[in-house]
Amino acid sequence: MSGQNLVERLSKRFGDKITGSNLEAIDPWIEVSPDGIAEVCEYLRDDAELRLNLLNCITGVDYFMADPKKAAKAGWEPHTEVVYHLSSTLNKHSLVLKVILPRWKDGVEGELPEVLSVSGVYNTANWHEREVYDLSGVRFVGHPNLRRILCPEDWVGYPLRKDYEMPLEYHGIRGR
C-alpha cells in the first residue's frame, strides 16, 4: 500500500485524529492526535493488510531552543514529539507515527503534556512509555504503572528535555 493511500484510508476512518503526514521524509511519517494514538495503533495492528504487530520503539523528542536568536531561526515553535516506530513481522514493512504535543500541558510549566498510552495495544509500550516519561517528561494517560525506569524514583527533572539542568546535588552527591 502506498503512503498516500494509507493516509487517505486512515483519515477516512479516524477523521481529524489524523492530523498530518510527511511522505517525502526519509522515513515517511503520519501525525496522529494525542487522543487518537491508541485506537490508530490498534487498527494498524489488527488490519489484515497492515498487521503492524511489532512496536519497535517509542521516542520522545523535545524541540526547544533556549537562545532566543537561535530559536527565531529554528523554523519551529517549541514542542515535544512522541515518535512511534511500528513494523510487521508478517508483512515485513514498517511505519512511523508521530504525536505532537505542547512542551507543557496548557502552557503551565511543570504540568506534563499528556498522550494516550498504547500499552494496552502493545505490551512492549509499557516500558518504553515509562522511559519516555522518565527522560522526556510526557505523561501517558492510561498507563498501568507510570514510574521512572532508568533514573531513580526521586530524581527531579526530565534529562532529555533541552532546558534540563543537572541538579546541583543528589543525596549528597555533587551533580555539577
Partner: peptide, 11 residues
C-alpha cells in the same frame, strides 16, 4: 513474543 517486542533469538 511479538507483543512484548522481543526480537532476535528470543523471537
Amino acid at each position: 513474543a511479538v507483543d512484548y517486542g522481543c526480537t532476535g533469538p528470543v523471537l
